[in-house]
Every structure is written in structure tokens, then in C-alpha cells.
């Protein structure tokens, strides 16, 4: 169970956060939530898949790092071998909190049980000795803001995809160099045939709402699957 607290300069004046990468810091994950606003940067590195949340009957987008739970093929010791990391990875151990009252302002929360809470005076300070936010926290606050706005746009995006029936189930079968076979099932992707069949006014609608670019980015991102498989083969070969 996570211990979340509202971040304040009084309570967390001396708080330090580990910003290095590592499995022990929670980076050994096979995927991360992403928002359509960052698809363009995500598709440079990772395959983008959709995941259907049955309880809420909604979709979320994921960047894929590996083929099984706990496998992050971009993580190499203390190095994350990519030029971009999804916002939801970078903002840890922080999160956006909303007060119970309707319309209250978003707050920065911190997960005090996160392995990123640094013991022993190493790691990056969140507040300086006078209680002012450090450049690190300023960056985090910007990222949290972007993520918050992205979340709100995400529902619109998937509503539009659903409206135009552009989502189809996606199953990826992977055969590794050593002959072993793996299957990624339960994900969804863009239905390319339907996308091609949209007429100009439909495309215009999607474009006006800002959805067209992320749709094509998600489509293009699937070429990263081959690179991810290559990483997997290399990892298997290393043992």
C-alpha cells in the first residue's frame, strides 16, 4: 500500500529523490501509461499499444518496454537506453492529487513508500534550504501539468477512436532467435484499413480535434516492435 502525502516545503524540506535508473528503483516494468500528447516523442523509441479497461469501459495507451511482466529491455543496469522516457515514468515518485471538493486545484503528491525516496542524503533535493522549489521540482511540476492535461485529452482521443471504430484487437506473435515463441495478447491498436477508408470530412474532424497526428504516430510506432524483439534476442543471447 502506497503512502501518499501532499508535497509541502515544510514537511519535505530535506526530501531527496533518486533520479538515477535501476530495477531497484522501480524501473523494471514492461510498460508505462502514456498520453496522446506525447505519442510523437514516444514513437521514436517504443511501440504504442492500447489497453482496454473493462471496469471503466475505456482505453488507455501504453508504451511497451518488454514482453513479460517485470521486463524492461531498455534498462541496462543504471542506464535507460532511450532518448525519451514517458512522463509517467519521469515524474515518479510524484503524482497529481485532487482535493475532494469539486473544482479544487491539482496538487503535487509524493509517494513516500517509493524506492525513489532517497535515504542518506544522496539524490536530488525537492526544496532548497530556504524552502523554494528546486529546478528539479520545477521540471517535475511542468511534467505533472503536461501529464494532467494529457489525461484529460486522452478520454476525448479514445472516444473519437471508438466513434470512428478505429480500434481493433492486436495480437503479436514473436519467435525469438532461439526458437522460443511468445505471444502478446489482450492489446489493441489502430485499425489501419478503417483509417484508410475515412473520408475527407471525417479526417478533417479528427484533425481539428488534434487526434489525427497521434493516430498516425501510434500506427508508425509499431515498427518499433521489430527493434524491441532485437533487444529481446540480444538479452536472451547474453543470458
Amino acid at each position: 500500500m502506497s503512502k501518499h502525502a501532499i508535497l509541502t516545503s515544510e514537511q519535505h524540506r530535506e526530501l531527496r529523490v533518486s533520479t538515477t535508473r535501476g530495477a531497484d528503483l522501480g524501473d523494471a516494468v514492461m510498460s508505462s501509461l502514456i498520453v496522446p500528447d506525447e505519442f510523437r516523442r514516444v514513437q521514436n523509441e517504443y511501440p504504442i499499444l492500447f489497453h482496454r479497461n473493462l471496469e471503466r469501459d475505456s482505453y488507455t495507451a501504453l508504451a511497451l518496454f518488454g514482453f513479460e511482466n517485470g521486463e524492461n529491455l531498455f534498462l541496462d543496469g543504471d542506464r535507460w537506453d532511450a532518448r525519451y522516457r514517458p512522463l509517467a515514468v519521469d515524474i515518479q515518485p510524484f503524482l497529481i492529487g485532487r482535493p475532494a471538493i469539486e473544482g479544487g486545484e491539482a496538487q503535487v503528491h509524493v509517494d513516500l513508500d517509493s524506492p525513489r525516496i532517497a535515504p542518506g542524503g544522496e539524490g536530488v533535493r525537492v526544496f532548497d534550504e530556504d524552502g523554494r522549489p528546486t529546478p528539479y521540482l520545477e521540471t517535475i511540476a511542468e511534467q505533472l501539468g503536461a501529464l494532467d492535461a494529457g489525461w484529460r485529452g486522452s478520454d476525448d482521443f479514445f472516444a473519437a477512436l471508438t466513434r470512428y471504430n478505429l480500434i481493433e484487437p492486436l495480437t503479436v506473435d514473436v519467435t525469438l532467435d532461439n526458437g522460443s515463441e511468445h505471444r502478446l495478447a489482450g492489446y489493441h491498436g489502430i485499425d489501419e484499413d478503417r483509417l484508410q477508408a475515412l473520408d475527407a470530412s471525417e479526417l478533417g474532424d479528427l484533425h481539428d480535434a488534434g487526434h489525427l497526428m497521434p493516430i498516425f504516430m501510434a500506427l508508425a510506432s509499431l515498427s518499433n516492435l521489430a527493434k524491441l524483439i532485437a533487444r529481446k534476442n540480444a538479452a536472451v543471447a547474453r543470458g
Binding site: T19, G121, E122, G123, V124, R125, T134, Y136, L137
Partner: peptide
């Protein structure tokens, strides 16, 4: 200076660790 002051440990913390 602000960024470094936030991200560097004290000498004591570094050497103890």
C-alpha cells in the same frame, strides 16, 4: 548553481554512503 545545489549530496553524505 540552483540545479547543482539540489542534485549534489553533501561531502559527508557522499563519503558516508
Amino acid at each position: 548553481a540552483r540545479a547543482l545545489s539540489a542534485s549534489l549530496p553533501t561531502n559527508r553524505a557522499y563519503l558516508d554512503a
